[in-house]
Simulated assay, not measured.
Amino acid sequence: MNKYKTTESVAKGHPDKVADQISDAILDAYITKDPLSRAAIETLVTKDNVIIAGEVLGPNMKDSEIKSIVRHTIKNIGYKNDGFHWETVKIKILLHEQSTDISIGVAHGAGDQGIMYGYATKETENLMPAPIFYAHLTLQNLMDAVEQYGLGPDAKLQITLRYENNVPVYTENIVVSIQHHENFSNVKEIIYPHIQSSLPVGWMCSEENLFVNPTGRFVIGGPVGDCGLTGRKIMVDTYGGYVQHGGGAFSGKDASKVDRSAAYMARYLAKNIVCAGLAEHCLVQFSYAIGIPKPTSFYIDTFGTSIVDQERITTFINDNIDLSSSGIIEHLSLQRPIYKCTSCFGHFGRQAKEDGSFSWEKTDLSHELYKELMEN
């Protein structure tokens, strides 16, 4: 039976991603000054305005410093348009001190209650589901290539992959909406080769199934055309809707918020289990309660692909990995200014870097898993 799976990616100029980048840039600034800073920073962007709200427990930061971060972020994205220009946009800051009730909880354990998921699959080289992998790869390559033509920065790409016998084999259709200048008429002609070169040979959909700016024009884009908010692209940020999502957004939250840190640990564990050859697919689920250090539940599902008992994997992880909120922070070294780079093109499936960003993508645990569970 053939199946079709669809997901999307959005570019750095998408209004929601503008908001995510601003929130994480401010978070990084606080952590740079004090690694123990706690923050939940929300950003709203709309025509001629940026509003920063949320809670912070950390060093004093002047409004002028925060505004400078906001303008620098918008400038790097590429907005210097009428209605949203990095130099002239109005910025309102409504940050206040973190609630003492939350601070008490963080001091003793997890910073909130919630459910988090992590996933890995052998479908792609970076152990991500193929739809989100190719959506991000294609849009990122496309945006890197077309800036010279004056296209963007607001864009999104939706891709539908055809599966046969549970294996992706073909691109059924692609939808691209990309901002362009007035009277720009050959967008499809420009972007077609960049999309084709991003996909495996023979995967490109037919030309009639490549839909580019379906309404016929996309001149008014970014925060002028649509309000943007932090945390509205949670499926784009994770696995493209391929598996369950806990519901919590990531951007603007420090690592005491298990919405973010435990989701990173869940991906780390799932990826290492698959990398070790213990399973072809792996889903890891956590749940936490505010103020309680250890997870209230920890569950692994390998969808029948595990070659060892799942209980042995769970026991090994429980015995060797500290799954408390503080243990996760230490294991993945999350008290560093590493978050702005996560806010575009997904938090997962990226390359771990020397500055500590994407530490949850390392596969160092896979060797221990293999030795303990495959050789013994």
Results as ranks from 00 to 15, higher is better:
residue 219 V to R: 00
residue 150 G to L: 11
residue 199 L to V: 06
residue 26 I to V: 12
residue 341 C to E: 14
residue 351 Q to S: 09
residue 195 I to L: 13
residue 234 I to P: 00
residue 273 I to C: 06
residue 100 T to P: 15
residue 17 K to F: 04
residue 175 V to H: 08
residue 176 V to T: 12
residue 183 N to F: 07
residue 120 A to W: 04
residue 306 S to C: 00
residue 91 I to R: 06
residue 173 N to R: 13
residue 271 K to R: 15
residue 344 C to N: 04
residue 213 N to H: 08
residue 375 E to L: 15
residue 45 V to N: 07
residue 52 I to W: 12
residue 152 G to L: 08
residue 202 G to L: 02
residue 238 T to D: 07
residue 358 F to W: 09
residue 72 H to I: 07
residue 83 G to P: 07
residue 297 S to F: 05
residue 246 G to T: 04
residue 312 R to G: 00
residue 52 I to S: 11
residue 163 Y to P: 08
residue 27 L to V: 08
residue 324 S to R: 11
residue 32 T to A: 13
residue 49 N to Q: 15
residue 337 P to N: 06
residue 155 A to T: 11
residue 253 K to A: 02
residue 200 P to G: 06
residue 355 D to P: 05
residue 330 E to S: 15
residue 314 T to V: 15
residue 51 I to F: 14
residue 211 F to Y: 15
residue 130 A to P: 08
residue 234 I to Q: 00
residue 262 A to W: 10
residue 242 Y to T: 00
residue 351 Q to H: 08
residue 159 I to S: 03
residue 349 G to Y: 11
residue 319 D to M: 05
residue 349 G to P: 11
residue 74 I to H: 02
residue 232 R to H: 00
residue 102 I to W: 09
residue 81 N to A: 13
residue 183 N to M: 00
residue 243 V to I: 11
residue 171 T to E: 00
residue 61 M to R: 10
residue 121 T to N: 03
residue 284 V to N: 02
residue 96 H to A: 04
residue 47 K to M: 14
residue 68 S to T: 14
residue 329 I to V: 14
residue 46 T to D: 10
residue 352 A to K: 12
residue 245 H to F: 06
residue 220 I to L: 10
residue 234 I to D: 02
residue 162 R to V: 11
residue 133 F to W: 13
residue 179 Q to E: 15
residue 363 T to H: 03
residue 72 H to P: 01
residue 235 M to D: 13
residue 291 G to T: 12
residue 137 L to F: 08
residue 199 L to A: 05
residue 16 D to H: 05
residue 126 N to C: 13
residue 195 I to F: 09
residue 146 V to K: 07
